[in-house]
């Protein structure tokens, strides 16, 4: 395995890490940068628990190599609340009881954040298809969908 020295931006901070060719961004985040808020549910891109934003797009961090991340900007759940204030999505997830065990929550919040950037006023169907790559086994999705739509409304209201 060759080693790679990678510098990237994580949650706005410059970071440097060393990784093997085979190590994924998920491995790097969890074991090298100790950002364990990004969860490993399957390792094959099927559950979405490891979703982070890379250059503004939602990705499965288990399907990206650490070596591919040179100069990339990564946003993880740890960077979502700013200055001690929760992001509207985080707040609405609490208000709507949109989490039970909470292990899928960081991935879903990141996916929802990317989704609302593309579409500030999604329909229920658009939210459901937007979150189709994020499995939740506890909630049956109902309250998650409501929370995302309510957060979208709040974010639209804040902008005007």
């Amino acid at each position: 395995m060759s080693k790679h020295f990678v510098s990237a931006i994580v949650n706005g901070d410059e970071v440097e890490f060393r990784c093997d060719s085979g190590e994924t961004l998920l491995d790097v985040l969890r074991t090298k940068l100790y950002l364990t808020g990004t969860k490993n549910g399957c390792g094959t891109g099927d559950c979405g628990a490891c979703t982070v934003l890379m250059n503004g797009r939602a990705i499965n961090s288990c399907l990206v190599l650490g070596a591919e991340c040179s100069d990339m900007s990564i946003e993880t759940i740890e960077g979502m609340a700013v200055g001690g204030e929760l992001h509207p999505l985080q707040q609405k997830f609490l208000d709507h009881a949109a989490l039970q065990c909470g292990v899928c929550t960081p991935g879903i919040l990141n996916m929802a954040k990317a989704l609302l950037k593309e579409n500030s006023n999604p329909s229920e169907t658009e939210v459901r298809f937007g979150l189709a790559g994020n499995l939740c086994r506890c909630t049956g999705y109902d309250k998650i969908v409501r929370a995302v739509m309510d957060a979208a409304a709040e974010m639209r209201a804040r902008r005007t």
């Binding site: 979405g48 890379m54 797009r57 990206v64 989704l115 937007g130």
Partner: peptide
């Protein structure tokens, strides 16, 4: 092909 996340890659 796959989810939004997959589509990004």
């Amino acid at each position: 092909i796959g989810s939004h996340q997959i589509q990004s890659r």
